[in-house]
Amino acid sequence: MGKVIVVTSGKGGVGKTTTSAAFAAGLALRGHKTVVIDFDVGLRNLDLVMGCERRVVFDFINVINGDATLNQALIRDKRIDNLHIFPTSQTRDKDALKREGVDWVMRELRNEFEYIVCDSPAGIEHGALTALYHADAAIIVTNPEISSVRDSDRIIGILAAKSRRAEKRESPVEEHLLLTRYSPERVKKGEMLSVEDVKEILSLPLLGIIPESPTVLKASNTGMPVILDPASPAGRAYEDAVARFIGEQREMRFVLPERRSLLRGWFGRAAS
């Protein structure tokens, strides 16, 4: 039975799709058969970030409506063997996510894949609720600013109340906090909440810190999951987060400002 991971946040623009793409790619790179699903019906983005937008024929809604089979709609990633992308419809809206249809699709995917990564839309309406309903684990994507933290808090509450696991009184959904667009320099200047602040407010275990990095935007624009860019600090941070998710111990990086200024060179010389 596959494990369903929902990537959610409440707030928009915090990095859910980037995280879904990076996470799914990271799991697949480790040899796990993984599918990443776009739940953002009407605002189809995941295919762009995954670089497969020109190969979309059928989508999630076609499958729900019985117009296509699951295998017709699944897109195999060309770069990573075990990775599949399940795109959504751009022409429909969230109401097309019919409960029974989604239930059936998730059942089928659980039988087929080890990990099912669900890219949730923003908000707390039908689309987001449908995305989180089947979750076994949730990655709560949060930016270090107060409105994002509050929206995350709200979505964690909803997860505890409205998921399938809550409804069936099974063990609760595993919750992981992923802090994205983190800039230690700006934290130091008091312009951003610190890791400690966010952890304190949300009281969730921290899965990783993704530093703010221009490589994320570049990766999105070129349709490549940022985790595939070895030069990107954000990519390395995602790699760490995936490893921790699987159960490996990794030290937190990117918490403190990088000291590659003159000072380091100067100290380096003094020490030698």
Binding site: D153, R154, G157, I158, A160
Partner: peptide
């Protein structure tokens, strides 16, 4: 969590966790 409401009719409420 934010958005959650707890009401105890006729009694006390004890929370041993943070209230957002």
């Amino acid at each position: 969590r934010s958005g959650t409401q707890i009401y105890v009719r006729g009694g006390d409420l004890v929370v041993v966790a943070p209230v957002s």
